[in-house]
């Protein structure tokens, strides 16, 4: 199931140092080892947390991967991507 693989990747990118390094070095190569279609790859590379949640990915993982790997790591941007104007977040990294 698509959601399961996506959760595995996002969990690894949230907590596993080796995965984080490999993703930073070459994200496309890192993702190529997983059974993903082009849309899945695009969702991850573009940090489309809204779409990821729409296919069932746990929001703790979308938040964790956003905080660890996204270009600006801003929770305001994260909220904005979800369509929220909330100034508050449950991020443990401020």
């Amino acid at each position: 199931m698509k959601r399961d693989v996506l959760e595995r990747i996002l969990w690894s990118l949230s907590v596993d140092r080796f995965s984080k390094e490999k993703f930073k070095e070459n994200p496309e190569k890192y993702l190529s080892r997983f059974p993903l279609d082009a849309d899945d790859v695009e969702m991850i590379l573009s940090f489309d947390v809204k779409k990821l949640q729409e296919v069932g990915v746990n929001s703790m993982l979308t938040m964790g991967y956003w905080i660890e790997m996204s270009p600006d790591r801003s929770m305001a941007t994260y909220n904005n991507k979800l369509g929220s104007t909330s100034g508050y977040s449950a991020s443990i990294k401020g």
Binding site: S59, M60, L82, S84, S86, S89, A90
Partner: peptide
Amino acid sequence: SHWVGVKESGQ
């Protein structure tokens, strides 16, 4: 009540 990592976070 709390919404974590979703659009409703902060409610």
